[in-house]
């Protein structure tokens, strides 16, 4: 994804960015200003506010890309699999050929499951961000 080209952002794959951001920036904000200034930082576009938003965007994008990768490997590899190993397409499960079962039935709960996980984790990222702004750690 082209968004990785941004040199200011480390690779989203570094992981655990949300936790690190929280400690470092929370301390920085607390040292220089009264605790409730984080919101003003955001609204006034100070470097601290900028960095806070970058952290949130990075966390959300990393989450979206990871789950997209799950779908690409889970579903996107199937045509290649059927082409490389035609035998797989001929396997029968409960009297139904495997490709019919995978594509016609199981792909839908799989997609819904990934979507459910995304909504849950994306909301958690936002809650962390909101908590960070409202109560910067001392």
């Amino acid at each position: 994804m082209a968004a990785d080209d941004d040199p200011i952002q480390p690779s989203p794959a570094a992981g655990g960015t949300a936790g690190r951001t929280r400690v470092v920036l929370g301390e920085a904000a607390a040292r220089r200003r009264p605790a409730d200034r984080a919101r003003a930082d955001l609204a006034e576009q100070t470097p601290v506010g900028e960095a806070l938003v970058r952290g949130l965007v990075r966390a959300q994008l990393a989450l979206a890309l990871r789950l997209a990768l799950v779908v690409v490997t889970g579903l996107g590899a199937l045509p290649l699999l059927f082409a490389v190993a035609p035998g797989v397409g001929g396997v029968k499960v409960f009297g139904v050929y495997l490709p019919w079962l995978l594509l016609g039935l199981l792909s839908f709960p799989f997609l819904i499951g990934v979507g459910w996980a995304y909504v849950r984790w994306a909301e958690r990222n936002e809650q962390d961000f909101t908590a960070l702004i409202r109560r910067p750690e001392q």
């Binding site: 919101r39 955001l42 506010g49 938003v53 970058r54 936002e126």
Partner: peptide, 12 residues
């Protein structure tokens, strides 16, 4: 970016 990604709960 702030507007697109920050939760509305902050009411900035």
């Amino acid at each position: 970016m702030l507007r697109l990604h920050a939760p509305e709960a902050l009411r900035l």
